[in-house]
Computed example of a mutant assay.
Amino acid sequence: MTTDLENQWKELRFGVEIEFIGGRPQELELLPGWIMSLDEKQIDETGMRSGSELKPPPLRWEDRGQLRIMLDRLAAQGAAANWSCGLHVHVELAAYGESILLPLLEAALRCQDALARLLESSPHRRLYCPPVAKAMAEAFRSSHDPLAVRHFGRPQSHRCGINIRPWFDIGTVEIRYANGSLDYGEIMRTVELCLRFVAAVGAGAALPDNPEELAAALNAPFGGYPPPIEPPRWFKERMWLEEAMIPVFTPLIAMLAPEAELHHILPVPDGLRTVIEFPGGEQWEYDWRPTASGWERFHPNERIQIR
């Protein structure tokens, strides 16, 4: 890499997970190496699963025009980003190797909240990017075990907002705080911020814990990132119900599948559906209905694999 710190970030390859609703994702013409993850659907305004997740191959800064082409194609199909969508940026770590993982965790402990605030991460989406905890960093320092930085229990996602686990599979760090967007300028400002953040950590910079000071330290834009979008009232009520029912279903799930975690809860006709996740990522559904003596499962001999 060049010794010019200001330009080092441009030499790092990156990827973006672009979540969207609507459009016709199965028909979208893809540039070479691009992937449409048709099973990664979001939630539209009616509560239905919609859209998909679009991902490029590893790109360099000078390849960013590919993003504009694909975003224009999505827009032509009527695709959009709403409150259910996020934007996850992967930054390749090959220039640093495994030695950058601990500095990334230490940087997360110092300034992860500032980074989330700089990106204006929607409060309802913070569930999907829990913070790195001091105990995680300490456990990883002593073991270098990928499981040490896996988030267990609630919040819902096991992937932290600054997520180093992809290093062990694809050689990247994932930064998950940005809200969804199909706007080229907003996406590229987000990518630039993430590249500058990783380059600064790789150079040993001590980053501040204030959003404005962090932007200044990184020489990154202070604004212009994907704005937060307020979710509809029905979605917030669903989340309130889910949070209220977690203490009820956690012990029931522990009896059914001690090795699994409660992933989420949804209302269904006559009851509630719990989705549990096993350590390898496999998910199962159980439907429950209330009775005078407690909760009973629908179709107790039937389990539906959903991922």
Rank of each mutant, 00 (worst) to 15 (best):
G78P: 04
F249A: 07
K10H: 11
Y225V: 10
D287Y: 02
E213H: 14
E98Q: 14
L147W: 04
C85I: 05
V173T: 05
L119N: 00
R176L: 01
P221S: 12
G204Y: 08
Q42E: 15
M36D: 12
P166C: 01
P221W: 09
W167F: 15
I35A: 13
V248A: 10
Q8T: 12
E120P: 00
D169I: 12
I276V: 15
L147R: 12
L193A: 03
E6R: 15
A133K: 15
C194R: 06
R233Q: 12
I175Y: 06
E45V: 11
R64Y: 01
E27R: 15
V275A: 05
W83R: 09
L266D: 15
L266S: 13
P267M: 07
W234D: 08
R159K: 14
L118R: 05
H263F: 15
H90L: 03
I265A: 04
T190E: 03
V248K: 11
S293Y: 08
I246V: 15
E138H: 06
H151P: 05
E243Q: 13
E212Y: 06
T274Y: 03
T172L: 02
P166M: 01
W284R: 14
N82G: 11
D145A: 13
L67F: 04
P56L: 09
E212Q: 14
S157W: 03
D4V: 08
R117H: 13
S142V: 02
E45A: 14
H124C: 10
E259H: 10
L115K: 07
W9Q: 02
G271H: 04
P211W: 07
A292L: 14
R289A: 09
L218V: 10
F298D: 10
L104D: 06
L71R: 05
T3E: 15
A217K: 10
P146A: 03
A260R: 09
A215M: 07
A215G: 05
R307Q: 11
G22D: 11
I18Y: 00
E40K: 12
I18G: 01
Q26F: 05
L118H: 02
H299Q: 14
E282I: 07
L54K: 05
P290A: 11
A81R: 01
G281V: 03
G161S: 09
I229L: 15
I43M: 10
F298V: 04
I304N: 12
V149S: 04
F278I: 02
F152N: 01
E98H: 07
E296Q: 09
A260T: 11
I162T: 04
E40F: 06
